[in-house]
Structure formats: C-alpha cells, structure tokens
C-alpha cells in the first residue's frame, strides 16, 4: 500500500505546482509530473506478484503474466501526453515572442 500512497504524493506535488507556480514552463512541468504519476498508478494496478512480462512463451504454457490491459491503455496515454506537451510548448513560445515574459500575472495585466 506504501507504493500507492507515494504515487499519490507525486500527483499531489504536481497539483501543488500547477496551482501555485506563476511561470508557464513550470506549470507544464507540473502537468507532466501529474501525468507520470497517473501512468505509474495504472501500471501498479496491473502488476501481479511473480508474473512475467506479457509476452507469450510457447515453451511455458502455464506462465503467470502481469495484466496487459492497463499497459495498453497507458501506452496510448503516453503518446497523447507527448502531443499535449508539444502543443503547450509551441503556445508558450508564441506567448514569449509576443509579451517577452513567461509570468502569467504580467500576461494577465497586459490584457485589454
């Protein structure tokens, strides 16, 4: 159960960063930390003690495998996480070119 709690603390660290930081790059870092903790949580749920990697070995028909379903889901989620990170980063670079700052307070003050 310790692992689940630690995984959750990692999520909370990311949440704290996303709420309290004022720098756009740090907000993106916090979001990806939250993402990573969710991936790890799903991989932890699928783990079976003594199981082997889910690759079928014809020589051992009775082998115990870890759960392949969460792994397939996480595989999809990892790639989508990369897509969102790339998108956010390109938006950030446009914002910096226009406003010369990454601080969200100053960008908010420039409005109007």
């Amino acid at each position: 159960m310790t692992v689940y709690i630690l995984c959750f603390i990692l999520f909370l660290v990311g949440l704290y960063g996303a709420i309290t930081r004022r720098n756009l790059v740090k907000i993106v870092i916090s979001l990806s930390v939250m993402e990573f903790s969710v991936f790890l949580f799903l991989a932890l749920i699928g783990y079976v003690e003594g199981g082997s990697a889910p690759i079928i070995d014809p020589a051992k028909p009775d082998a115990l495998y870890v759960d392949p379903l969460p792994q397939a889901m996480v595989l999809t989620a990892i790639v989508i996480g990369l897509a969102t990170t790339a998108m956010l980063m390109s938006v950030i670079i446009r914002i910096y070119r226009k406003y010369k700052t990454l601080d969200i307070r100053e960008i908010k003050n420039l409005r109007g």
């Binding site: 991989a43 870890v66 595989l75």
Partner: peptide
C-alpha cells in the same frame, strides 16, 4: 513492473519532450 513496452515508449517520449522543453 514488467512492462517493457511502456519503458521503451516512455524513454523515447521523455527524450523528445525534454529536448522540446530545453529548446523553449
């Protein structure tokens, strides 16, 4: 956790996103 597929994908994705962030 016996998830080699995830490890391969994650190491590639992490490298790409690190390069992107450093570039920004």
């Amino acid at each position: 956790l016996k998830a080699p597929d995830l490890a391969i994908v994650q190491i590639v994705v992490e490298t790409i996103s690190l390069v992107l962030m450093v570039a920004v």
